[in-house]
Write a protein that binds this DNA or RNA. Structure first.
Length: 566
RNA sequence: CGGUGAUUAGCGCAGCUUGGUAGCGCACUUGGUUUGGGUCCAAGGGGUCGCAAGUUCGAAUCUUGCAUCACCGACCA
């Protein structure tokens, strides 16, 4: 490709709307343009990268024995009614009507369509297991699209679904997909980790997320500093403190200070106090059971996912309002405490390990010191409801927790029978009986990977693409081609030769100053620059500049070809 | 959805307080100059100032409504 025919579209200035570095660089290097909130046009350079990612994903899925299909983006609402998700999915599901006023949705995922398909197509256990995938545009009406294509509303996703008669078979395939995912991210050249994950709204049993490590990531990942253990903080277990709880040594005492003031003005440590949150419970008939108290050590944070998984806590987690708290306890939220509450009290393991602690007194601007659970607080339930923090012992039993940020680029689930049951997806088993299938589902955010790769690979000049997904393998940059016939001839013939060899090369034939050309190619992240100049032509050489290392070397023109034969 | 802020040329911004129908830098066009790291000089083209209504002789500027975009928003009890 010649730059004179190419939609280069680089920007010198950073558009004000771009927050994260990948979004800024994607705009500046001319990869994407914004169309509306969360919707993007992919320009030629961006599309090349997207297609490369897509192809690597496709090749590895095929290698793992998955069949490629393509399902429609617009899906009948009936299917979603059948699975029960039409109501469950919420406002992220974009609903629309056709000219006959029939109800449709824009597919945020394709479990319904594929399960229906397989229910119709398969009839015998002999056809199992089955593994299918597609690479298709999804639409999720995000509350707050941000970070460019990282969290867009429309995005390109690879989704795969597997169907099995038995759970053991699913587990085998799950492992196979896990391995395929590792190969994919290895080939993409990204620094990634598989991490244990919560199954979230899709439901199911086992689940792993694949995260690209980057400070701008939206997820916290807990690692062990002594083993391979990695888990999303949502899911990472906070172990109970080791050793016996100390016996009470102080008497309970009422203090005329708000808990917060008490901690600030005296030497009461934060981690020797507890904070109490009143949340909506699942029981609705009995007034006192409408709420549940969650108690955490002062320095810890509530883990919403863990709390929602408790049977007596309403999901989604809903905090009681100040009015509700006043009505029930007759105090402000800041003075709540576990002693004497009329609702179920669920205490985090670490908070439950405290003795002689400090807490709110359920009266405005009053606190207790020297509180002890059994002696002062009656019945409590102990559970793991906090986020792990750096330095906690790792739940794997080895080492301590370190927390890093990650960008979720892949997610695999053992789905189980949820959809197969709802959509009546079954085959005849060996005994001639109808048997509901067990499913797995496996996603990769193709467009998100492009942004994640940039977050992880850039410098002050621009993008530094991993080789496997660079839009061009190399660029030919002639010095002062307009003046030197020799430079022009050499550059042209080099270009022709590389094209013949099938090298993806961009020939910068613009009448620009060298600085402009260098800056553009560095911004776009082309891995290799072939600089043709008078300076080296007497020796029949060109200069080679490596975008990643910055290294410059001279190479004989006849040897350039060999750089690309692998 | 709630809070905050923004909306003036393709991009980045000034002008608004103190109403008199627009300006800067980059980009773009033309001519010259320069040519191994975003040259320099000159001359140009491009905007019904987000939309609608109101106040006024007169609105980018004041008022109201709407739209769009962006940032922040669990807990911190």
């Amino acid at each position: 490709m010649r730059t004179s025919q190419y939609l280069l579209s680089t920007l010198k200035e950073t558009p004000a709307s771009a927050e994260v570095i990948s979004h800024q660089l994607m705009l500046r290097a001319g990869l994407v343009r914004n169309v509306a909130s969360g919707l993007y046009t992919w320009l030629p350079t961006g599309l090349k990268v997207l297609k490369k990612v897509e192809n690597i994903v496709r090749e590895e899925m095929q290698r793992a024995g998955s069949n490629e299909v393509l399902m429609p983006m617009v899906q009948p609402a009936d299917l979603w009614e059948e699975s029960g998700r039409l109501n469950d999915y919420g406002p992220e599901l974009l609903r629309l009507n056709d000219r006959h006023n029939r109800d449709f949705v824009l597919g945020p995922t394709h479990e319904e369509v594929i399960t229906k398909l397989v229910a119709n197509e398969l009839s015998s256990y002999k056809q199992l297991p089955l593994n299918v995938f597609q690479i298709q545009t999804k639409f999720r009406d995000e509350i707050r699209p941000r970070f460019g294509v990282m969290r867009g509303r429309e995005f390109l996703m690879k989704d795969a679904y597997t169907f099995h008669l038995e759970h053991e078979c699913l587990e085998k395939t799950y492992q196979k997909m896990f391995d395929a995912y590792c190969r994919i991210f290895d080939r993409l050249g990204l620094d990634y980790r598989p991490v244990i994950a919560d199954t979230g709204s899709i439901g199911g049993d086992a689940s792993h997320e694949f995260h690209v490590l980057a400070d701008s990531g939206e997820d916290d990942i807990a690692f062990s500093d002594a083993s391979d253990f990695a888990a999303n903080v949502e899911k990472a277990e906070a172990l109970a403190p080791s050793g016996e709880r100390e016996e009470p040594s102080k008497d309970i005492e009422l203090v005329e200070l708000k808990l917060e003031r008490l901690i600030k003005t005296t030497d009461t440590p934060l981690n020797a106090s507890v904070k109490t949150l009143l949340v909506q419970g699942t029981a609705t008939d009995d007034e006192s059971e409408k709420f549940v108290a969650l108690v955490l050590r002062g320095d810890h944070q509530l883990n919403e996912v863990k709390a929602e998984n408790l049977p007596s806590v309403a999901s989604p987690l809903t905090l009681a309002t100040e009015e509700q708290i006043s009505a029930l306890v007759n105090c402000h939220s800041t003075s709540l405490g576990p002693k004497g509450l009329s609702v179920e009290v669920i205490v985090d393991r670490s908070a439950a390990h405290l003795s002689d602690f400090t807490c709110g007194a359920n009266e405005n601007n009053r606190s207790y010191t020297g509180v002890n659970w059994q002696r002062d607080c009656g019945d409590i339930t102990v559970a793991d409801i906090r986020n792990v923090v750096e330095g906690d012992p790792s739940p794997c039993g080895k080492g301590n927790i370190v927390i890093k940020r990650g960008i979720e680029v892949g997610h695999i689930f053992q789905l189980g029978q949820k959809y197969a049951e709802a959509m009546n997806c079954a085959v005849l088993n060996e005994g001639g009986k109808n048997q509901t299938l067990t499913m797995g589902c496996y996603g990769i955010g193709v467009s998100r990977i492009v942004a994640a790769a940039i977050e992880q690979n850039h410098d002050k000049y621009g993008i530094k693409w991993p080789k496997a997904i660079a839009p061009f393998q190399a660029a030919i940059v002639p010095m002062n081609m307009a003046k030197s016939a020799r430079v022009k001839e050499t550059a042209e013939s080099l270009y022709e030769q590389l094209l013949q060899d099938g090298v993806e090369v961009l020939f910068d034939d613009r009448k620009e100053r060298p600085g402009v050309m260098f800056a553009d190619h560095e911004l776009m992240g082309t891995p290799l620059l072939l600089i043709v100049g008078e300076r080296n032509l007497d020796e029949k050489k060109v200069e080679l500049k490596n975008r990643i290392t910055g290294e410059k070397t001279l190479i004989a023109i006849e040897d350039v070809k060999a750089l690309f034969s692998n």
